[in-house]
Design a protein around this nucleic acid. Structure first.
Length: 701
DNA sequence: ATAGGGTTAG
């Protein structure tokens, strides 16, 4: 390799004995030369050659460039320079401590800090703020408190402790110790906007949105000046709270004070408006940004995703790629979430390969998103593989896996993972228990489900919410224990909502319990009088018990009361060659696949097989005829599916957002064996994979 | 050379 040593002035002596002279400002001089890693290598070589490397004034700017400044900075390279220093001073340590934290190795920052103390190098305020940042990242409260003690002992020696105090506030907040953070904050002699921002970001970090808004109002009351940064935290809180009024008020304030020059502020506004459901406003602001960075794009994508406009979100993602903005880990989390909900397996797989190709960091959340995506698409084994390969896992990761296993019919495995999670001391949360209870539900583990419901508050200190009781009511109902389900609803310490009564109503239909169905309808009609589906459930419950007269009466009553039979629009997703087509009933926007879907619908209708009533019919015709009925039905579907022709090697995935009865799944099994291609049927909560006639969740059915 | 923006589950 050829080094261009001419970048150093030629009067620099290169002999061993000469004492080198520095340029007037060596730091500026060196930093100006180091714009890329290649420059850095050359400067490094020159410094070795000129024997200047051991001089802190020359080595430190080099360190700084390597550890912090260069866009492709590598901490390992910086550390190799650092190790060569004979007596690194505090600034050298500071650079390395900040460098390690920046490179996501805060634990190494702590080790280096220990080494610094051992070497009797006295920390300065910069050291403390640096190490406190590392500790914040780790959430290492004990270490943080030790540093706090250190700081208190040497406090008077620092002429400016404000930096350190801000970092202390931030550290306590990151460790979830909001009271300690607030105590340091309240005891500060002077509070700059930075201090306020630290406190705000602490509340933001812990999700204490109301406290953010409260503190902001207090700040305004005190007439304290706030800047763009302060507002960014407040906007985030407004978004999470859905407090559009305050958000709009601050927006106006920001406009009036000329703060809209700040792109980060605009990005946070985009996010705030999107989270408050004002997609058009968010989009207008987004479009107004002259240059949009990856974060702005990510905010817009997640905005659409959160407003149930996932196809639009993916469209924006494609636009982002056309604009040549490189997606990062966070972008991909939103994109994968969209793919999972849409069942866009091809797109999601592409995202996964992109992640591998570009070596995006498998952060906890990204791993979680991948696990969730594959599980939602029915690829449980890939989800499991990725779960085990995840470099770090959080309660979210575990929850996504448990949920994924449960919804794919692997309830027992889901519970095994829950136990493993507890063994590994990961605290489950409310959502984890939704997964656990739905695992019990799907696997028919009735006794276990009831035990877990009881253990929630007893062993884990989590009070069950209506949703948890709903899971158990559904489980008992499916198992035919309607009386138990009913008594659970009446005895639970929470007010039952319409959903829970409707769940009971549905199981009354399944198990021919018109008496309890009557009571359930009474309750559900009181809570949501206009929901037509409930009357139909009761009518069906009568019909299933042979009380056809009562069934007719309910339908009459429905008409008299003017409850319209509003069919919720059937919605299907079809992914062909990586493009997801979304259909509502009678949606003619996709001529190439519309015909096919329309055919499916029509054939089902002509065959008299309203999806909702198919189970009832199959049971009515009796066991022998059931076979015939399934065969008949399969043929219809097979014909319809056959219409969807794609090129060789393209997977056709048909998702029907309809309640599927087991006949449909049998049908899909037959079709897949006939057509020798993978067919995935998705209903609201489960994915069923059929490949060559075998169903991956066969046990469940 | 302190602080601040985007993300995850039923």
């Amino acid at each position: 390799m050829v080094f261009d040593i001419s970048i150093f002035p030629s009067h620099f002596p290169t002999t061993k004995t000469a004492i080198p002279k520095f340029p007037a400002n060596p730091k500026t001089f060196i930093l100006e030369k180091c714009k890329t890693t290649k420059d850095l290598n050359q400067v490094h070589a020159s410094l070795i050659k000129t024997r200047l490397l051991h001089h802190p004034a020359a080595a430190e700017p080099l360190l700084e460039a390597a550890a912090l400044l260069l866009p492709d900075s590598t901490i390992d390279y910086a550390f190799s320079i650092f190790r060569k220093l004979e007596h690194p001073d505090a600034s050298a340590y500071n650079i390395m401590i900040r460098g390690f934290t920046k490179e996501q190795s805060p634990q190494k920052s702590i080790l280096l800090f220990r080494q610094m103390i051992e070497q009797l190098v006295r920390p300065d305020p910069f050291t403390y703020s640096g190490i406190l940042k590392a500790i914040s990242k780790l959430g290492a409260l004990k270490e943080g408190e030790q540093i706090h003690a250190h700081v208190l002992k040497s406090m008077e020696k620092f002429d400016r402790s404000e930096f350190v105090e801000n970092s202390l506030v931030y550290m306590y907040a990151s460790c979830g110790q909001l009271q300690s953070a607030r105590k340091v904050f309240d005891e500060m002699s002077e509070r700059s906007p930075v201090a306020w921002s630290s406190m705000f970001s602490g509340y933001v970090r812990c999700g204490y949105w109301l406290e953010v808004v409260g503190l902001f109002r207090k700040m305004r009351g005190m007439g304290i000046y706030f800047n763009e940064t302060t507002l960014i935290s407040v906007f985030k809180a407004c978004g999470r709270l859905g407090d559009l009024e305050l958000g709009e008020w601050i927006h106006e304030h920001a406009v009036a004070n000329g703060l809209m020059k700040n792109d980060n502020l605009i990005t946070s506004l985009v996010d705030m408006y999107a989270k408050c459901g004002r997609l058009e406003t968010a989009r207008r602001l987004f479009d107004s940004m002259p240059s949009k960075d990856v974060i702005a794009w990510s905010a817009m994508i997640s905005g659409y995703s959160h407003s149930d406009q996932r196809r639009e979100a993916l469209a924006i993602f494609h636009e982002m790629q056309r604009a040549n903005v490189k997606p990062n880990e966070v972008t991909m989390i939103s994109v994968l979430s969209c793919c999972g909900v849409l069942g866009a397996l091809e797109t999601g797989k592409w995202v996964h390969s992109y992640i591998k190709r570009k070596k995006l960091k498998l952060t906890v959340n990204l791993s979680t998103a991948l696990v969730d995506f594959y599980a939602k698409c029915g690829c449980v084994d890939i989800a499991l593989e990725l779960f085990h390969a995840a470099p770090s896992k959080s309660v979210w990761t575990w929850t996504a896996l448990i949920q994924g296993l449960a919804s794919n019919g692997r309830g027992e495995t889901a519970l095994e993972y829950f136990n493993l999670m507890v063994e590994e001391n990961v605290e489950p949360n409310e959502v984890t228990f939704i997964g656990v209870l739905s695992a019990c539900n799907h696997a028919g583990l009735v006794a276990q489900g009831c035990t877990y419901l009881a253990r929630m508050s007893r062993d884990f200190g989590i009070e069950p919410k209506v949703e948890h009781f709903g899971c158990v009511v559904d489980m008992l109902g499916r198992a035919g224990l309607i009386e138990d389900a009913y008594s659970l609803i009446t005895k639970m310490p929470l007010k039952p909502n319409a959903v829970i009564w409707r769940t009971l109503l549905a199981s009354c239909r399944l198990h021919k319990k018109p008496e309890i169905a009557e009571e359930a309808l009474k309750q559900v009609a009181r809570l949501e009088p206009t929901h037509s589906g409930d009357y139909i459930l009761l009518a069906d419950a009568y019909a299933s018990a042979g009380r056809l007269g009562d069934a007719a009466k309910v339908r009459d009553e429905m008409k008299k009361m003017g409850v319209e039979k509003k069919k919720s629009p059937g919605c299907s997703y079809i992914e062909v060659g990586g493009v997801v087509h979304e259909f509502l009933a009678e949606d003619k926007g996709h001529p190439e696949v519309y015909e096919a879907v329309h055919e499916v619908m029509e054939r089902i209708k002509r065959g008299g097989y309203e999806p909702d009533t198919m189970r009832g019919r199959a049971e009515a015709v009796g066991e022998g005829d059931k076979e015939a009925s399934v065969a008949h039905h399969s043929e219809k579907l097979a014909m319809a599916f056959g219409i969807i022709r794609t090129g060789e090697g393209t997977t056709v995935r048909v998702y029907k957002n309809l309640r599927m009865c087991s006949d449909c799944h049998n049908a899909a099994k037959v079709i897949s064996s006939v057509y020798r291609r993978e067919i995935v049927v998705r209903d609201r909560s489960r994915f069923h994979h059929f490949k060559d006639g075998s169903c991956s969740c066969h046990d469940f059915w």
